[in-house]
Write a protein that binds this DNA or RNA. Structure first.
Lengths: 113, 113
DNA sequence: TCGTTACTTCGATCGTCATCAATATAGACG
DNA sequence: CGTCTATATTGATGACGATCGAAGTAACGA
């Protein structure tokens, strides 16, 4: 078990400027790219499926079956979200378990405040 | 004054399913399309500019000048955000003032919880 | 070592969308 | 009515990205 992850890798840095400050173009672009990571129906379904899974994490094959998409497609989405810090990645033998990083998800939602 | 708008038109309906519930494909798509509305750097800048404006609203020409983009481009973004309920639209003579609908913006951020 | 299973990477395709120029609408003012 | 100004609409283009099939990598078991 050991639910403590070994650190979610070098994070892409949130900054979390929010809309209150005057947004520079660079800030606006970085905020937009972070929002775009979760602005896809398949990715939202992945997050929802992982969240509702009993283990709090899912394997690639699980998600592939539940989504009805090809496995490379699912791996692609998982990679993008893991790189954005939204998902954690934990290899176990041949399998890889993906879990949610709730703080990161909340931070993205807070970008609109 | 009378800051009460005459109702922001037939709203696209939020639903706000959040990630806690198991997301159907249709729910995931509607949530994603709402998130996509604000997942653009120019739109985030528009929101930030309006928010930081003294009147709490901006005219198309104001935003066009501040963004350094063509007027039809700005009008396009304003239309999309207004249709999504994120902006209010108030014509005044030849001019049109666009303001923020904060509750709607918060609701979008809450979709990730 | 061989085959099988689980996942990742690569390359191509197709649709969506941000932006533009051109044009249309519409209010203000003479 | 004409003219100027402010905004909206239309149509075209270029870029990005979701998805797929094919091929690569890696772990487990016989």
């Amino acid at each position: 078990m050991s639910p403590a992850q070994p650190a979610p890798s070098p994070r892409p840095s949130v900054e979390s400027p929010s809309l209150r400050a005057t947004l520079s173009r660079a800030q606006a672009e970085s905020t937009a790219s972070l929002l775009r990571v979760v602005s896809d129906p398949t990715r939202l379904q992945i997050l929802s499926l992982i969240r509702s899974s009993p283990e709090g994490a899912s394997r690639v094959a699980d998600l592939t079956r539940e989504l009805g998409l090809r496995q490379p497609t699912v791996s692609h989405h998982l990679k993008v979200m893991a790189e954005a810090g939204v998902l954690t990645r934990r290899p176990a033998g041949r399998e890889v378990w993906y879990g949610i990083e709730p703080a990161r998800l909340d931070a993205i939602g807070d970008l609109l405040r």
